[in-house]
Structures are given as C-alpha cells and as structure tokens.
Amino acid sequence: MTNEPPVSTKIDAADSGQASDAPDAPQDRIKDGINVAHLQRLARLALEPDQAQAAQADLHNIVAMIDAMQAVPTDGVEPLTHPLETPARLRPDRVTEVVDREAFQSVAPAADAGFYLVPKVIE
C-alpha cells in the first residue's frame, strides 16, 4: 500500500439526492482519488495545508481498507439500518418542555437580547 496521495479529481456533485449512478469499480475510485478539499467544504472543516496532505493519504488508505467489503456478495440482502428492527414509538402531542433560555444561552459563544449571533449573512 502506498502513502502517496493520489491525484484528485472533482467529485461530481449532481443536483440532489443519491444518484443511482454509483461509480464503477472500487479500484477506479481509488485511482481517481478522493477530493479532500470538496469533503472539507461539505463538512466545513478547515485543515492546515500539511494536515490536508496527511488527510489525503489517510483517507486513501482508509477507503482502500473499507473497499475490502466490496468483495462480499450482497445481492438481495436488505440493508440493516438498526440492530433492533422495531418500529418508531410515538410521543403524545403535549408540551412538557420548559425552556430556560438563560441556562441554554449561558454556554453560547455569542448571544444578545435572546438571539444567537453569527457573522452577518448576505443572502
């Protein structure tokens, strides 16, 4: 296994939803590389340049490790999203929460007049 970061290509960000056009073979994905910059954008995660370089190599290795599961035949297998496949339990429509804004905002980095504040957003 090499630690050389592969050449990254842009991930196709289609308009919405999970495209059914899953990429071809795992080897191709590895070869095509992982666009760490794009993932960082999606995850809103700043990385120093050297961290980004290391992340590229690490992700390459992690994804290669993960791709071992591609060899397992899973045709006709239902995905298991939850260990106990029980249905949702519903809550009666009643207001029981008492909101203590002061307590909640005592841990806020920036709040004023009951509002949370963030740098001005231009829509």
């Binding site: 429509d93 207001v95 929460e97 909101v99 909640f104």
Partner: peptide
C-alpha cells in the same frame, strides 16, 4: 398545527420572545 414540535415537547406557539420556545432538542 400541533401543540408541540415534531421531535420535541416544546411549544409551537407563534410570536414568543426569541429562543424561549427552543428546548435542548430543538437547539
């Protein structure tokens, strides 16, 4: 027009003071 929120038991009433109807789940 439920009384409480879809995933928490905080009130949905309109027009309250800011963030007085946002419980820990909503936050």
């Amino acid at each position: 027009n439920t009384d409480s929120k879809i995933f928490s038991a905080a009130s949905t009433a309109f027009g309250a003071e800011p963030n007085t109807q946002a419980c820990a789940v909503d936050l």
